[in-house]
Design a protein around this nucleic acid. Structure first.
Lengths: 242, 242
DNA sequence: CGTATGTTTGACCGTCGTCAATTGTAGTGG
DNA sequence: CCACTACAATTGACGACGGTCAAACATACG
């Protein structure tokens, strides 16, 4: 007999509460069935598990049902560069369409449930479903937008503005999933945050402390509560597309 | 009678010396004819002319035949953010597939000749030419790669490393077009370079001076000669995908 | 309970931004 | 052709932000 928590999980794309986000809205029901059959519903993954490695043959993109994932690559000098954080309802793994291999690593930041969307299937389906192709191109284009927002953040904004932008971004994305926008758990470490934002761990920690002393946030380890969303947002100039 | 310099210009995609770069190699000749008819061969543009504005309806992407283009957007606080430089043989204008409008501005940095590739035509053609669709996705994916390389550059590298990376990137891209890799004219201003690399004009200028005093480059205003390509490359850790 | 890892805080210092002045270059009109 | 202006680039002095190094502390894990 299956365990209770498995029972309440959605077993197909129709009943998944986030289908509206990771699938094109315009799909007819018959099309959805086809896609539904193509998608591999993921086994739950533990923390710090690799979804794929850089260099792996590119076969699929992944939708997050629960949990969180970071993507990163190893630069020429052997250091890690975090390239993105992904939350429930979001899709990652676009890198490596170019040459057929992933250019990033992807690991879970906490226990997560993923849906694997095989790309070959998609390509076959998209021949008869033009909306699907369009949808995927839009998602890629959105990835470009967030990358450019990050570039702006890195080249123009101070440490405080960068951290504020990330917090506001997380808040907005959680809110769009009908989760609390002001009280949540940071899935990533301070080191990951710093790496992503081009800062050191120490600086990130100091900014958190300063924000706390200004009553902008309350934060205990990874649990965070945004006290003054308005003032924090005013610091986050470039969170819009992050 | 037409002027000599107009006569030597390629009049279609077949004879264009850079067709191999902006079009998929796998196209059959018959397909190439179709595409050839779709492309609007560009009128030459003067320096500082807009190709498109942010907010403009997205209708086309553009290939550069000669000259140079920069793309940039205006951030929330009203300042400019340069998002890319484009050289002969390269295609720009992918932004705004997402929502149907360009998110960037694009202006010529010097007198340029462009080819406009209408996107509606492409979508129609790609129905019968799967290679074309794949090619475009790869180009978008490549854009993501270069953005991520820039992110790494901005978050990890010093001013000297950033400038070196840009110079090496330009050098490689010019070389791939059978132009000199060591002696060329910088199409963009110091301010544009600084903006792109997250540095101030003053810092860029100082780095140029330092490079010159170390005999890495010789540079007079916009004319630049790379003296010690090897040592300059060793500074440019993240130029590979820039 | 002990070790490893993540986080916080402090002191110090270097890189790069800011402000300011100067020089050089390109473009304009007398 | 040259003065005049506007703009781009260079150089210097100074200071601040954030990195580096180090130590203390908290938390997670076996």
């Amino acid at each position: 007999m299956r365990s209770p928590q498995l029972m309440i999980k959605p077993s197909n794309c129709h009943s998944c509460r986030m289908s509206a986000l990771c699938l094109p809205l315009a799909l007819r029901t018959s099309d959805l069935d086809l896609l539904d059959n193509a998608i591999k519903r993921g086994k739950p993954m533990q923390k710090n598990q690799s979804v794929f490695y850089a260099g792996d043959r590119f076969t699929s993109v992944y939708a997050i049902r629960s949990g969180a994932v970071k993507s990163y690559c190893i630069t020429d000098d052997g250091t890690e560069q975090v390239t993105g954080f992904y939350l429930p309802g979001e899709i990652f793994g676009w890198d490596g369409i170019a040459n057929g291999n992933h250019s990033n690593h992807a690991v879970t930041l906490e226990t997560s449930a993923l849906c694997e969307i095989p790309f070959a299937q998609f390509e076959r389906l998209s021949a008869t479903m033009p909306m699907l192709q369009q949808h995927f191109m839009r998602l890629m284009s959105k990835e470009i937008s967030t990358d450019q927002a990050l570039i702006t953040l890195l080249s123009k904004n101070s440490a405080e503005e960068r951290v504020a932008s990330l917090l506001i971004s997380l808040s907005k994305r959680l809110k769009s999933q009908h989760l609390s926008a002001t009280k949540f758990r940071l899935p990533m470490s301070r080191a990951d945050i710093g790496n992503y934002l081009g800062l050191t761990v120490e600086t990130v920690s100091r900014v958190f402390s300063r924000f706390q002393s200004f009553d902008l946030i309350y934060c205990e380890r990874k649990e965070i509560e945004i006290i003054n969303l308005k003032r924090l947002s005013s610091l986050a100039h470039n969170a819009e597309h992050l």
